[in-house]
């Protein structure tokens, strides 16, 4: 019997700390998060002052300047600083990652809990629902949703990605809840007269929260990637410096040797996706309840 009470999250954190690669990725994620916050502050600042922000001002005199001490990552075809636009791109990527998660995760968790806990007809219906969603080609479905949203732009992206990516989590949660439902502590809770909602969300859900955290860290970069593809195809963001738009505009002049915009955006995207994925994997290991005790 240990003397000090220690939380299970504490154990997971200790295990995560030992993993150097995971800690490096966590550092990278924190760095990107700070950049996103900085980008939001800059964006709000110019919005409140009601002036055009420098990263969106056209200055054709300095178009296509190679990286230099004045413009560390060079300038694009309209003479805008690539680094400043890249930071704004981080802001948009984070918005997409977070808002789509706020749509997809509650849907997946609630439907998964209901299906796993009640079984029978409820389960049949939810399985039918997510099978139907899963059977449609993802990107086409997202594009279709984004097209019908009247306000073209980010709202379409949020809804498109948010409403289509809950299926994987729903399946995982359903399976986990089915597993936990048979455990004695749930039987005991039933025998003690606890209601279904309380058992599902207060007793079972904390036991499967690791699934949700891992899913968040893995779907975040996927959502970012999808946004880039959508913007690249011209259906997502308009008028704001999304990475997808930057890649789209950079590709035009790539063959003329204007490599910097494409390179830096791609590196940023690569690092963000990689950091989140590796961190997600490490989290999955660290939070595995089988390693506890």
């Amino acid at each position: 019997m240990k003397n000090k009470s220690q939380s299970l999250w504490g154990d997971a954190w200790r295990r995560l700390k030992k993993n150097r690669l995971a800690m490096f990725c966590l550092g990278l994620v924190i760095f990107f998060t700070l950049l996103a916050v900085y980008g939001e502050i800059v964006y709000r600042y110019y919005e409140i002052k009601d002036v055009a922000s420098p990263y969106s001002l056209t200055n054709l005199d300095i178009a296509y300047e190679a990286p230099s001490s004045r413009h560390w990552m060079g300038t694009d075809g309209l003479g805008r600083d690539v680094m400043a636009r890249l930071v704004q791109g981080v802001r948009i990527a984070y918005k997409v990652g977070i808002i789509t998660s706020m749509i997809a995760i509650p849907i997946g968790v609630i439907l998964g809990c209901l299906a796993g806990f009640f079984g029978g007809k409820v389960d049949d219906f939810i399985v039918w629902l997510y099978s139907t969603f899963a059977s449609m080609p993802g990107l086409l479905f997202i594009l279709a949703i984004a097209m019908v949203v009247p306000d073209q732009g980010l709202l379409g992206v949020y809804l498109g990605i948010g409403l289509t990516t809950w299926v994987g989590l729903c399946r995982l949660v359903r399976g986990e809840v089915m597993k936990h439902k048979e455990q004695t502590y749930v039987q005991a809770a039933k025998a003690l007269g606890l209601g279904s909602g309380r058992i599902m969300f207060k007793h079972i859900l904390p036991n499967i929260s690791h699934v949700i955290i891992v899913t968040f860290s893995l779907r975040f970069p996927a959502a970012v990637g999808t946004e880039v593809i959508m913007s690249f195809l011209g259906i997502g963001v308009q008028g704001e410096p999304s990475w997808g738009l930057m890649i789209d505009s950079a590709r035009m002049r790539l063959w003329q040797g204007m490599w910097w915009e494409m390179t830096f955006v791609t590196i940023a995207l690569f690092l963000l996706v990689l950091a989140f994925n590796l961190l997600g994997d490490a989290l999955r290991d660290a939070l595995d309840p089988r390693l506890n005790d």
């Binding site: 009470s5 299970l8 455990q183 004695t184 502590y185 039987q187 005991a188 809770a189 007793h203 904390p206 036991n207 929260s209 309840p289 506890n292």
Partner: peptide, 9 residues
Amino acid sequence: YGSLNPRMK
């Protein structure tokens, strides 16, 4: 071992 919720005091 199984009849107590592991995530609850």
